[in-house]
Nucleic acid binder design. Structure first.
Lengths: 221, 221
DNA sequence: TATAAAATGGGGTAAAATCCCCATTTGTGT
DNA sequence: ACACAAATGGGGATTTTACCCCATTTTATA
């Protein structure tokens, strides 16, 4: 009688997991990679400074896992993850950020990240996320659990509100925003009112502070 | 005739350099430390998440070198460096930040940092800064050179302007700022006018964006 | 197709911000 | 005593923001 050898059932246990790291901070990226490579199971395929560079480098040979920072100049994490999920549905994505609040985490999960790791986590947490996502296809940690729990209480911006929110975080008057979007100032004002209500702020100043401190815009303004 | 052995002249070459790392992002801090410890000459004395924790930990036994991140919750890099220079004048300080612009770099150098390393630099750059600062007492790199070159062209805020600038970056009306400082709204407005001129902005919105993007406030607002 | 949610925008008001003008006082250094 | 920067603040104007009211049209979706 023929018995399938154990190592075929559990082949992933000894398999090499290939990964890529996308983060603009070289010092962080290189030290993270060096640490991860101490785990013999892991193999670095690519590193990149932003989304554009990453997509170009992995196009012909995507890795199993991609670690993507949210805040990057040029193409930020939100855009990058959206693109990756559409063009490389089999590649697992670990979103990484120093902004570990429910807003940012929910946003990346919505864009298609398979899990989230904070820059406040331990290196072992990152390793666990990698192996977990590779072996099981998902990884639930405190961040993901908390974000999902709070999801129903979180304000949800409509499409137009989100568009105007981005403009509100830049240096434009309502008149200029209205001009850009070819709508009335009154409409901009009406949406602004709703955005203020949802984020519980009462001045543009505090909206911008809130946005920048919570990583709601992946790139600098 | 007695000849002093070379190793006494160059004793620092084999000496152990003790260092501390102060950065709130655990993942970055630990991977950086792991990388630095690969340089056998270096020895970790302490790690901390913010200025307060650092000062407490090194009080009885300061290291040769302290690497301090600018942006930290609680006691930020600016405050920490100011304190360290006053209480541990012999300890060399390497300021570290993701904000590698002339404003932030000049600010930390003014507070007393002995050199500056960007999170966009290579790990080797950090190693070079450490050995340089230890052996020569200073370290000139492209950041420090550029910052000094641009120094004369940079706007310089007066004491009061700087105080009001901090308030402008928070969620307060001019009336509230005036109340806090026990001065007239008109005075606040007058200083604001000068601050706008110096930083070349024309709205509070762009002032806040400018400040947050350039790391001019070491802690979140 | 009924219904709800989203997007549009007009009217009006009060507060806040922006930008000038100007003068006086206070402090620092020569 | 003099010069000069820094800090103070009044007067006055326009623009922008903030916050209500209201109604219509468009879009999604059950």
């Amino acid at each position: 009688m023929f018995v399938t050898p154990l190592h075929e059932y559990y082949s992933f246990m000894n398999a090499t997991i290939t990964f890529a790291v996308c983060d603009d901070h070289t010092l962080f990226r290189k030290t993270l990679i060096a640490t991860l490579l101490n785990f013999k199971q892991l193999s670095l395929l690519t590193e990149a400074q932003n989304g554009k560079e990453l997509i170009f480098k992995i196009s012909t040979n995507p890795p199993h896992i991609i670690i993507v920072d949210i805040r990057m100049p040029g193409m930020d994490g939100y855009e990058t993850i959206t693109y990756l999920k559409q063009h490389f549905p089999d590649t697992k994505i670990i979103a990484l950020s120093g902004y570990d609040n429910e807003y940012a985490i929910n946003m990346v999960l919505e864009k298609g990240a398979d899990t989230f790791i904070s820059k406040n986590d331990e290196p072992e947490d990152m390793y666990l996320a990698i192996t977990d996502v590779y072996e099981k296809g998902f990884h639930i940690n405190k961040w993901v659990r908390e974000a999902k729990r709070k999801l129903k209480h979180l304000p949800k911006l409509t499409l137009k509100e989100n568009e105007i929110f981005q403009f509100l975080c830049r240096d434009l008057t309502y008149g200029q925003i209205a001009e850009q979007l070819n709508i009335s100032i009154k409409t901009v004002d009406r949406h602004r009112d709703e955005i203020f209500r949802k984020f519980n702020v009462n001045s543009r100043t505090s909206l911008i502070i809130f946005s920048l401190n919570n990583g709601l815009t992946g790139s600098a303004l």
